[in-house]
């Protein structure tokens, strides 16, 4: 990776053309695809994404064309020289394995989305056992790095992180969105068609930083911070809490596609001002 900023899954990630633009025009170090499943999914009806005062609320519902349809997009990205992480979603362990194996040849790493808040039923990342089994099953088949994306919607995120560590995950993405709701008081109804959604943006940062910090204290694998990174200073907070890289999503809306370039240059500014040579020197410094 040319820099520690990664496009978070679900943002401008529905096609090769979009991801390529974020990589080259935006300056991301890597990009994560929309979560891919076995079959095509239309996701939820609109409204799927709405801005609220506190952040961005979404319930897209894992819409994607199915991993087989997406392989040509991945090939296109490879040919274009884009560093790409394929996000993988399954309703069962075997589905996670099928999709991960199906896309592995065309991706630099796989991110297991164990934590989408917008599908029915319990999330894999809300169970230590399921998280362990999913990671272990995929790890046993793949040579490329496997990331696990965790949810903050748990009482004890450290236990889930430990379970993933035990299953030999290569990195943890901390975290997915917080489950939330917006009701319009004049329509007198929840705005999202799915009623609830995942809340992202600045409001997520203190929650995710806390999660990174707690995990970094207990777990000895790489962490990618995710949630409300808008500026280099936000990224630095994650580094200090123990993350080695950050993912950026919602900030694309407010700072533009080139938010990655902006964040990188702001990280450099911080390091220079504080007298550090590299990001490595500040990782986990606050612990």
């Amino acid at each position: 990776m040319r820099n520690p900023t990664i496009l978070a899954s679900g943002v401008l990630s529905a096609s090769g053309a979009a991801l390529k633009r974020v990589y080259f025009e935006g300056g991301a170090g890597a990009v994560v695809t929309k979560s891919l499943s076995v079959e095509a999914r239309e996701g939820h009806k609109n409204p799927t994404v709405i801005e609220i005062e506190e952040g961005l609320l979404n319930a897209v519902g894992l819409a994607n064309p199915g991993y087989k349809n997406f392989i040509k997009e991945l090939k296109y990205l490879k040919e274009s020289g884009v560093v790409v992480v394929a996000s993988v979603f399954g309703k069962s362990i075997s589905e996670y394995v099928e999709v991960a194996c199906g896309v592995a040849k065309y991706a630099d790493a796989v991110e297991l989305n164990l934590s989408c808040p917008n599908v029915e039923g319990k999330l894999f990342a809300q169970s230590e056992n399921l998280s362990y089994e999913a990671v272990r099953a995929v790890k046993s088949k793949l040579k490329i790095p496997v990331f696990a994306k965790l949810t903050p919607n748990v009482t004890d995120i450290v236990s889930v992180a430990k379970a993933c560590e035990e299953a030999k995950v290569d990195a943890l993405v901390v975290t997915n969105t917080v489950k939330a709701m917006k009701i319009d008081i004049y329509a007198k109804k929840p705005v999202l068609a799915n009623k609830t959604g995942g809340l992202s943006g600045r409001c997520l940062k203190p929650i995710a930083v806390r999660c990174v910090y707690e995990i970094a204290k207990e777990v000895d694998i790489d962490i990618i911070g995710c949630g409300g990174v808008f500026t280099g200073e936000d990224a630095v907070e994650y580094f200090l809490a123990g993350a080695k890289a950050v993912q950026i999503g919602t900030a694309v809306l407010y700072r533009g596609i080139d938010v990655f370039k902006k964040v990188c240059s702001e990280i450099e500014d911080y390091l220079r001002k504080e007298g550090f040579e590299s990001i490595e020197e500040i990782i986990g410094l606050a612990i």
């Binding site: 529905a14 053309a17 994404v49 979404n58 897209v60």
Partner: peptide
């Protein structure tokens, strides 16, 4: 087909140019 309508979700990105 639009989802977010504000340029964040990527559903309407055009192939070739990458415009939203």
């Amino acid at each position: 087909y639009f989802k977010c309508g504000i340029g964040i979700c990527g559903a309407c990105v055009l192939d070739g140019c990458g415009y939203r």
